[in-house]
Amino acid sequence: MSHRRVFRRFILPSAWLIIGALIAVSLVKLAFVGGSPAADDQLYPSGEIPAETVLAEKDTIKNSLSIPGTIELVESQPLSAPSAGVLNWAFVKAGDNVSQGDKIFQLRVESTVEPAPTNQSGPGEHEADEAEAQPADDAPATTVSYHDVLAPAAGKVGKFDFSIGDEIEKGATLASVQPQSFHAVGIIKALDRYRIMDENLDATISIEGGPEPFTCVNLNVGDQASETPANAASEEEAAMDDSAAQPQDESSSGSEVSCDVPKDVVVFDGLDMTMDIDAGSAEDVLTVPVTAVRGLVGKGAVWILNDEGKEIRTEVELGVTDGKVVEIRSGLTSDAEVLRYVPGSAPAPSMEPGMEIYP
């Protein structure tokens, strides 16, 4: 028998048989035993996402806000009656311009004075006869006085609410004085108030198509007051169902910021404007994102990772912020690695301009 025939009839079939047996054994092992422990450790998902960190780095912060708003007339001042009486005289007419302290109205006030008793003891028989013969002199006396109503501010006198000769109650509004001065008014988010806590700031007002940008003084920041007129009560009740079904407009809440327009600048009521406020800056200072800090005024805390990966709370002193990053004055060193987000917070950045706050 030749070698070729021996190889084809005996050796080759035996080789295929051995290979098949090895494959079968491997399949059985994979099916009932599984892979190696080392491979399982490498491939098994842990469900944990590594904490995101950032480095504290030097940067320049410019704390400036740009606020849209309108030009508005200063609120009118009421002319109130100081006492009850009769409207006796008007020194001006509606539409006249007056100065602060000018006389506007005069009230005629009548008052009754009870005389003091002259004799507390009962009259004798002779005195009683004389009292019957003489007219009584202890009748109440009526006195008349005049009170002026002065202009509380310089401006234009509005329409009179009463006519000469009318009876006036104390505190009644006789008319109003509309000051011919203006202020710029805008609305900022309540959290942005922390960025303009300095009471001595000025603002730059820009009016498209109007005068050159000018400085607006006496910057004032306060909560926006909500007024509900009495005649609007029924409309408010009718709209309650609709408003409950619709989301609230975020722009309706916030803080009002206003400043006085200089008298030499020509503006008109209702003009659209932009108010730019420069609340300070800091150059080449250590900064971290505001999302890494709990508390953004004065003092706060950040979290750093130690060599074992444990989160360590670290107190820091804070400075200027532009709503995106905040100055770290003390508590951290340059290139310190801190958590990008305060522990327990979920990244949910606001789509509106302003402070970047993560809950």
Rank of each mutant, 00 (worst) to 15 (best):
P289K: 08
V297N: 09
M275G: 10
D307I: 07
V267N: 04
E283S: 14
K299E: 12
G270F: 07
K263N: 12
P262L: 00
E283K: 15
S251M: 13
E283F: 14
E308P: 03
V266R: 01
D284Q: 13
V293M: 06
A244C: 05
V265F: 01
D260C: 03
E283D: 15
G298L: 06
A282H: 02
C259W: 14
S251P: 01
M273K: 06
A245Q: 11
I277C: 08
A244T: 05
S255Y: 14
V285C: 06
D284C: 03
V266C: 00
P247S: 03
V293C: 06
D307V: 08
K263G: 07
T274L: 13
V302R: 00
V290M: 03
V265Q: 02
D284W: 05
D264K: 00
W303D: 02
Q248P: 01
V288H: 03
C259R: 14
L305N: 05
K299Y: 07
V265N: 01
G270E: 10
V302K: 00
S255V: 10
G280Q: 08
A244H: 08
E308T: 12
G270V: 12
D284A: 12
M275D: 08
T291A: 13
V261H: 10
T291R: 12
S255C: 07
N306S: 02
P262Y: 00
S281D: 14
D272H: 11
V261T: 09
D307Y: 11
V261P: 06
D276K: 15
V266Y: 00
V297K: 09
T291M: 03
V267M: 06
A301P: 00
G309H: 08
D269C: 07
G254N: 12
V297G: 04
E256S: 13
M275F: 10
Q248E: 10
W303V: 08
P262G: 00
F268S: 15
P289L: 02
A301V: 07
S281K: 15
L296G: 11
M273Q: 13
D278I: 02
A292Q: 03
A292N: 04
T287Y: 05
S255W: 13
D264R: 00
V265R: 01
G309D: 11
S252E: 12
D276W: 12
S255R: 15
